[in-house]
């Protein structure tokens, strides 16, 4: 029982961050790609990571924070294992996207942007996934589900442990 996965995983993440920061240090316009990379590594953007990024790119932390909060893609809180995005774009709006969203809210007992207590799902509403021909549409991670009805949802969610 000398397994130490948690610690090792953290240090590989830190190493990955360090490598990335070294690669981008002198490049112009690096902040957003670096934030995207850091979020891919950690799953979200912890405050300590933001401080490291600010130091490496010679930017005030407030500036980094300002950019992070401007874009919807960046998250300051840990997120669920599976990300559900419900389209509330125009095409989905007129074909019942809101009913899908309400059903998911009720089923998972979370609001827009929140994560379930067991960290299984994060629910987000988005404006257009670009599969409008199949409205109403949701994506779970990289999988797209179209022509949905609320009844189909429990079965689809069950596929994601």
């Amino acid at each position: 029982m000398n397994c130490n996965c948690g610690g090792t995983a953290e240090s590989t993440k830190d190493a990955a961050l360090a490598t990335m920061l070294a690669e981008y240090r002198e490049k112009p316009g690096a902040l957003i790609p670096v934030l995207q990379g850091a979020q891919a590594i950690y799953g979200y953007l912890p405050e300590t990571v933001l401080a490291q990024i600010a130091a490496a790119l010679h930017l005030p932390l407030s500036h980094v924070f300002g950019v992070v909060t401007f874009y919807t893609q960046f998250h300051l809180q840990p997120r669920g294992r599976h990300i559900i995005r419900v389209c509330l774009g125009t095409a989905c709006h007129v074909r019942g996207g809101a009913a899908i969203f309400t059903a998911l809210q009720q089923h998972l007992d979370v609001n827009d942007g929140e994560t379930t207590e067991d960290q299984r799902f994060t629910l987000e509403s988005v404006a257009c996934i670009g599969a409008c021909g199949l409205a109403p549409v949701i994506t779970i991670n990289d999988d797209t589900f179209g022509r949905l009805t609320p009844e189909q949802l429990p079965e689809i969610l069950a596929r994601y442990a």
Partner: peptide, 11 residues
């Protein structure tokens, strides 16, 4: 960027 909801031409 194609942010217009309901559009997927550029994609």
């Amino acid at each position: 960027d194609e942010g217009d909801p309901g559009a997927f031409m550029d994609r």
